[in-house]
């Protein structure tokens, strides 16, 4: 990175070398020590990264929600034992071991936060967005949840109660948003397209047919 024109002769000497940031140095140091000591394997680390970059994300959760909308028996099962219901669709594992589904109704809206760090249901939502990890969200979701919703452009009808769920290392919540009107008879695939990530955290609503938030 340090190309330099060296001196009066006008010819270029190759002084280019590499640089690693302090953070990158710390991570490389840690990784090389852990690999040497046999605690981690590079291939396994690559596989984990690939999984979370490409295979695990909110599309999984959207399928869960769409099935709950379309299939009352599945919805009942989801409310009784979310972990098992979600696993029946093939989603499970890390940070989804103890799932609880909380259902939005005209009377009650649910909002999920992790005030301690950023516990989040990875198998159904992937890794959390930056705002979920911010101090502002972690504190304001508890102190002023309606203000947070307003920030996201969501206004609840008068009389709708707002419940805030604080995730922990043990329990992860998935919000089951309300099914938008005008979607009777839709396929699960079509319904899943209406389910946004934010609607499963509670900072948003499912999209209405036609694209706008319901």
């Amino acid at each position: 990175m340090h190309a330099s024109d060296d001196g009066p002769h006008g010819h270029h000497h190759e002084h280019d070398h590499s640089e690693l940031s302090d953070t990158a140095l710390r991570v490389r140091a840690l990784e090389s020590v852990l690999v040497e000591k046999g605690y981690v394997e590079p291939d396994a680390l690559d596989a984990i990264i690939e999984t979370y970059e490409t295979r695990i994300g909110p599309r999984n959760g959207a399928r869960v929600v769409a099935k709950a909308w379309a299939d009352p028996a599945f919805r009942d099962g989801l409310r009784r034992d979310a972990t098992a219901a979600i696993a029946s669709l093939g989603f499970g594992g890390r940070q989804g071991e103890h799932m609880v589904a909380v259902e939005n109704t005209p009377e009650e809206h649910n909002l999920v936060v992790c005030t301690l760090c950023s516990c989040y249901p990875w198998p159904v939502l992937g890794l959390p967005p930056v705002w979920y990890k911010s101090a502002a969200y972690r504190s304001r979701a508890v102190i002023d949840p309606r203000g947070v919703l307003a920030d996201f452009g969501v206004t609840l009808p008068e009389g709708t109660r707002l419940r805030v769920w604080d995730s922990t290392a043990e329990i992860r919540y998935l919000v089951l948003p309300m099914r938008p009107a005008g979607t009777e008879g839709w396929s699960e695939e079509a319904l899943a397209d209406l389910v946004t990530r934010d609607s499963m955290i509670g900072t948003g609503l499912a999209r209405a047919p036609g694209g706008v938030a319901a």
Partner: peptide, 28 residues
């Protein structure tokens, strides 16, 4: 009041080191 840092689309990891730190933790 503190604004929420909003961003519509963001990569899962912004830099390779973030991914490595995450993966090491999961593996351990």
């Amino acid at each position: 009041v503190a604004p929420l840092p909003r961003c519509a689309e963001e990569p899962v990891f912004r830099e390779p080191w973030e991914a490595s730190a995450f993966a090491m933790t999961v593996a351990l």
